[in-house]
Design a protein around this nucleic acid. Sequence first.
DNA 1: TTGAAAGCGCTAACAC
DNA 2: GTGTTAGCGCTTTCAA
Lengths: 342, 342
Amino acid sequence: MARSGGVTIRDVARRAGVSIAAVSMALNGTGTLSVATRARVRAVADEMEYQADSLARGLRSSSVGAIGLVIRSLDLLGDYAPEGVDVFTRFIGATTSQAMARGLSVMLVPDLTKRPTPPLALGLDGYIVDLPHVDDPVVRLLERRGIPYVTVGRDPDRPDFTDWASEDGAAATRRALDHFAHRGAGSVALVRGAGRNAWNIDAELTYREWCAERGIAPYVDEADERDGEAGGRLAAERLLAAKAGRLPDAVFCFTGRHAAGLLAGLTAAGLRVPADVMIAVASDSEHARHSRPAITAFELSTQATSAALLDLLQARMDGRPSTGPILTSARFHPRGSTKRRA
Amino acid sequence: MARSGGVTIRDVARRAGVSIAAVSMALNGTGTLSVATRARVRAVADEMEYQADSLARGLRSSSVGAIGLVIRSLDLLGDYAPEGVDVFTRFIGATTSQAMARGLSVMLVPDLTKRPTPPLALGLDGYIVDLPHVDDPVVRLLERRGIPYVTVGRDPDRPDFTDWASEDGAAATRRALDHFAHRGAGSVALVRGAGRNAWNIDAELTYREWCAERGIAPYVDEADERDGEAGGRLAAERLLAAKAGRLPDAVFCFTGRHAAGLLAGLTAAGLRVPADVMIAVASDSEHARHSRPAITAFELSTQATSAALLDLLQARMDGRPSTGPILTSARFHPRGSTKRRA
DNA sequence: TTGAAAGCGCTAACAC
DNA sequence: GTGTTAGCGCTTTCAA
């Protein structure tokens, strides 16, 4: 008791001289009550500042008015506030604001397949899963439990699943590669993340297509997201070792920290950016903005993506048909790292 | 039913050949059960992947394993993902990560005094209130309901309340002002936010003290946080009008957007920064970093503050005595906007 | 050492 | 129209 302030439906019923059922109906606008009773009950409830306990209500009605947000990349990173990575925190803020506007609360949930399961995690009305990876246990769990969910980026395992929204990664990748070409790059390398998610998989695909179209030999390296800048530096070393004399004219990275590490690694080896090698990154970040030179990057359309996701999720929760997938476009910010004469 | 996956305590009891009470006791380590029974029940529960429904559990035990996070500044701003403001989203990420490490879930809650009350809001175990303002209804509500809470920044109304943590605003303000003085500033103006919170109130106090110590006439202006950059531009106009011939050598702002607007306004009026006027801001942000010149700013120690708050909150929830308040120190980043010869 | 039973606060059938 | 009643899944006396 008392958790919701002491005053329960029983108190209101007593005071209004009706049954608790009448109170419930009056307040929820259900059942068949006379207008008079309904009004009187409402008045009494207001006066007593009665608030239905959402726990108890949820227990009955299987709906608590809250959704969960799982950021798979952070689960894998093992750090929910990584330095210099504001992509996720922005996304969280945007999603929260959009959800609140719809009367939904948002709960940040860490990998809910790990024990102990975060409290309330399985009681939420729905989920947004950011970047599910191949064979993702979180998606499997939600699926098995029948909890509605939508994803950021398609589920790599289920081409038929349409409840997802995402930045248009293919468009961004092409834009970056064209930008390189336009700035005189003949060969372009790619440093993708290690995570088996749509973001990494699809952008690599786009890159390979683009190379094929131009008869360029692709060079794809992979850096672990968890390694952060160090991962980028390792990629630089591998690149230098592999392509010794014939370094690519440009490198496209997927994460800000890799890009920053790559920049540092190449610079340390005596190369000049952008004169010798250009660098661009698929998602803007502190690292991209603060490197010297600043790294050309895409600013994600977080607000639009969040709104799309909530539209999709609410449709799912209400049993309406899916209108997904929904693609949003990132804004391109050319910076010093690609500043060459066209 | 089914909300937690279909398998209930009843199923486990049946399968283990015991009563549901025995299952509850076995799993919670309560009551007096034989070691054998306890073990057997646990085994069965594991095998069935049984998970207690935290809603139902909360209904009985008044504890759901989740805390709420209310960001008052965002409530007032009316926008939960304002552009160029990453202070809050960072804070949310940091708090969530720290909470998860302690087995707590975090729910982001908008102003819970507004109707309709966000679901679950009143059922949470405790709250972190970011920057309560004078006469804050959220604090009053939590107080009245007896829900444990801690605040970021002291509650301006209750000097005796010790369950708070914060950046050391006084130290930062002094540091900025000294930095100005060291760079040759004889007069310094202040542009504070309009919010009646500890952040604004205390920093103004520090500023006035600092001025008094040096016999400098204080100039304090106030810009509404909701106005963003435009608010800073208005402050610039007022400053130009008020101090016509004798402009201050430097201005200290409290928010990144005000600082950026101020910079834009002064520049538009033909003034040069930092040559004519220096600018610094109390909290780092996109605007501070991206302005030209970049604006000298303090990078808040988000992680440390979050950790401190959770320590305090857990103490409160467990009924342990308070060890607050706890102050953390922001890191100073001198940038172009104060780049004058010392 | 165990089980039966009484609720937590609420909603939704079903009687009246 | 309105009230009675049976639970939702769980914890916790209290008797056995």
